[in-house]
Amino acid sequence: MWLVTDARLMVIEQSVVATGGLSLPLAEDPPGVRRREGLPGDRLRLEAFFAGPEGPVDPVGPPIWIRSGFPYVTLRFAADIGPCGEDGLDLALQCRVLGDELTLPPVPMGGFQGRDENFVFMFASTSAEYDAEDCLDFYIRGGEGERFGCHYTRERLAYGPTYRVEELAGVELSAPESEPDYYAESLRAELRFSGPAGVRTQTAVSGEVVTMRADERLALELVADEEELQMVIEERLEFLSANFFASAPLLPESAFYSGSSLASVQAPDDDGAFLYFRVGEEGRPYSHHESWQWFYLQLVLGDPEAPPP
């Protein structure tokens, strides 16, 4: 479990908001779910989630997204990076995404081999001293001075399902037919508090404020409806796994956590604490990219049975 002591980037969520000609229409998806991966021509929305010791953090201005065919940004000046075309068919290897939506470019013949991937870079600032443009400039040209208020990351663009990508790339199929990957919209935390006053349970969704007593211990498990965890291969379900973060040290050394559950969380002090989760779905061995889902809870001290003020 990680202790979050400064603002940091936690999760980038990529989701398809409109399809191009190659994907199944969005209307055919189950209601209310977001598709996690797309095919060339699809429009992908990019969202970045930051968190700090005081709770989730918004960056100073919207992040800058740059799509790149290289694993690094090669141009020497930010001004040289032109905007990405609407149809994803620009010739430039690097382009700046307008807003937070980009169109997925074509899959190269032969597929994504070695390091020649399609990437998206994110540049954002959580410090009042500089903004995202300053951070982009600093990344490209280097310079003196610390910039830990800048956040940089590089992710692979979420192409999928993999068997369709392989078809488009003209390579031999190795992945089984499958639906596109979805986010688990029913993702929730099953909480179990135990203490001298007894045991109680609660279910919480992302962003909820959870009250616990100072002498209680919390065990939690992230769950999602079974329908949402898709059958992938040979009738095995996907399952959830998570990385856990907290804004205060809440776990004793001997705490046990694995997969999607966490036990022996202690109560926070008067200031409360946040629990952050990067939730992933395991069981998809042929998935080309990694994408996580954002989930967090706020813990406060108090009497859970007292009526709200």
């Binding site: 936690m10 980038i12 940089y152 990067r278």
Partner: peptide, 9 residues
């Protein structure tokens, strides 16, 4: 080292 690249962990 003046900045770091990556996310979460």
């Amino acid at each position: 080292v003046v900045a770091a690249m990556g996310s979460a962990s």
